[in-house]
Amino acid sequence: MKITLSGNLLRFSKFQREIDVPGPTVAEGLTRLCGDMPQLRPVLLDGAGHLRKVHRLFVNRDQLMNDELGRPVGEDDEVMILTAIAGG
């Protein structure tokens, strides 16, 4: 899958906006992404390892709820992570 990150997350991905990540599901892709980029982990995931509610996740532009992260994805699928709002 190709994971695309929102602009305020780029500081934690070494300013990579699009990242190819192998994995059979969205959840697995997020785990691998955070493994490859450990700075992203506390930003994307809470202490229990769940995606923080402040982020919205889309697969091929369809929004995915937090209980749908087990959805299978292929290498051509685009997973987009957007931050809803930031308190800057």
Binding site: R52, V54, I85, A86, G87
Partner: peptide, 14 residues
């Protein structure tokens, strides 16, 4: 007003 959920990215929720 928003609550800062993550002090690093400043991601927040109303």
């Amino acid at each position: 007003p928003v609550r800062i959920e993550d002090p690093v990215s400043l991601a927040a929720s109303p």
